[in-house]
């Protein structure tokens, strides 16, 4: 028992959690508004690929990262307009955009894989500051930022109120279009950041690199206990959700459970937590 909770192990787990958590942080804001974003994973892959391609073609790492973030922002704003302005169901809009993202990623990569990126970039994934891995630091800083925005600013409150009752929010003078737009913008930016950090960590990029995360990005938010109805939860809960999923995955790996069975276990866990959330709401 004593060996599990060593500082080393804790840091390792945090590092393993960081990319999943980064991806699901921005998504949390969207879910708080009562919407969903299926495009985070494919968008992260696209942004990672764009960053890698830019660098391989001789641009500085910084420019690669900025291009990735701008791509994320563009996708986020498009999602926001489709959902907030054109009133498309967020399921449809973001699923469509996820296909666009993964299609673009394949085109950008020309079907290939990029290996061996410069140290400027890989430091973002593999470097450490003191004993802390850089991905943990990045994720920690964005977490603190997002937590403060959601819990301590008027904008954050508008996010919650929009998710709690969009009609009442409108009748209170809250601009739900701007709120939804900003939420998707954050989701896009965090997707891009996750993609860049992942590329740096893997020291490689390919169009399907985030497929392993799949719906786990959404599951982290739900397992953490944020309501898919919107308005309840927060990034701190998503942190717990991402941590739980990572630890369960670790345990299954150590126990030598085959990956097919791992999915089954995840499925059951998500059903249980979803069921609890549902029954909690229908009791009140």
């Amino acid at each position: 028992m004593t060996t599990v909770f060593t500082l080393d192990n804790i840091i390792t787990v945090l590092r393993q959690t960081s990319i999943l958590f980064l991806l699901s942080q921005g998504l949390t804001v969207v879910i708080l508004t009562g919407n969903i974003d299926f495009s985070v994973g494919p968008l992260a892959a696209l942004c990672g690929c764009i960053c890698a391609q830019m660098i391989v073609h001789g641009f500085p790492a910084g420019l690669g990262i900025v291009s990735a973030l701008m791509t994320g922002a563009a996708f986020g704003l498009t999602n926001g307009l489709l959902v907030g302005k054109l009133k498309l169901p967020s399921f449809v809009a973001t699923y469509g955009m996820s296909m666009v993202a993964s299609g673009l990623a394949t085109i950008v990569m020309n079907g290939g894989v990029i290996y061996g990126l410069p140290a400027d970039l890989t430091a973002l994934g593999a470097g450490t500051v003191g004993i802390l891995p850089v991905p943990v630091i990045v994720t920690g800083i964005t977490f603190a930022f997002l937590y403060a925005v959601l819990k301590k600013t008027s904008f954050g409150r508008c996010v919650y109120l929009t998710g709690l009752n969009q009609s009442a929010a409108r009748y209170s003078g809250i601009n739900s279009l701007m709120t939804i737009l900003a939420a998707y913008l954050l989701s896009g930016l965090f997707g891009a950041a996750g993609g860049v950090v992942m590329t740096a960590r893997l020291n490689a990029a390919d169009a399907g690199m985030t497929e392993a995360y799949g719906l786990k990005i959404i599951a982290a938010v739900v397992v953490g206990g944020s309501s898919l109805l919107g308005g309840e939860g927060g990034v701190e809960r998503t942190f717990l959700g991402a941590l739980v999923l990572t630890v369960i995955s670790n345990i299954m790996n150590i126990a030598g459970i085959a990956s097919e069975w791992q999915n089954l276990v995840f499925g059951v866990i998500i059903l249980l937590i979803g069921g609890l959330d549902y029954s909690r709401h229908h009791r009140s």
């Binding site: 709690l164 009752n165 009748y171």
Partner: peptide, 14 residues
Amino acid sequence: GLALRASLAWNVTS
């Protein structure tokens, strides 16, 4: 008029 799932305080300031 109200976000029913929200607290009294949140509604007051909404």
